[in-house]
Amino acid sequence: MNFPKELKYARSHEWVRVEGSRAVVGITDYAQHQLGDIVFIEVPTVGNKVEVGKNFSVVESVKAVSDIYAPVAGVIVEVNEKLGDAPETVNQDPYGEGWIAVIEMSDRANLDDLLGSDEYADLAAKGGH
């Protein structure tokens, strides 16, 4: 399983790529693997405020409905509309084309609570808890 070094990770299995004041967010390779074939994604709405640890999107596999939690607080400034027609992109390319939303961060200190790639890899190896 792949956990890129340059990303930060939430214990609830989202990843964050920091681009200036913005955070690109998706779900990890571990998460997409656990979910299995993803068949529907409810993307958030641009302009919505999100709070750390609150669900802001829903990913559905054939069998399961899973909440996606905001790893940082802020405002949604961009969403990946392509996932509406091609939710399987999250399985195929979780860190690239499978990104879910971009959050304009309101508190960069949120980033300090996220895990580095090695720490997250340990978490995933222990079954994700």
Binding site: G36, D37, V39, S61, V62, K63
Partner: peptide, 9 residues
């Protein structure tokens, strides 16, 4: 087993 390679496949 809920799946092996994947439910869709």
């Amino acid at each position: 087993p809920v799946q092996y390679s994947g439910i869709l496949e």
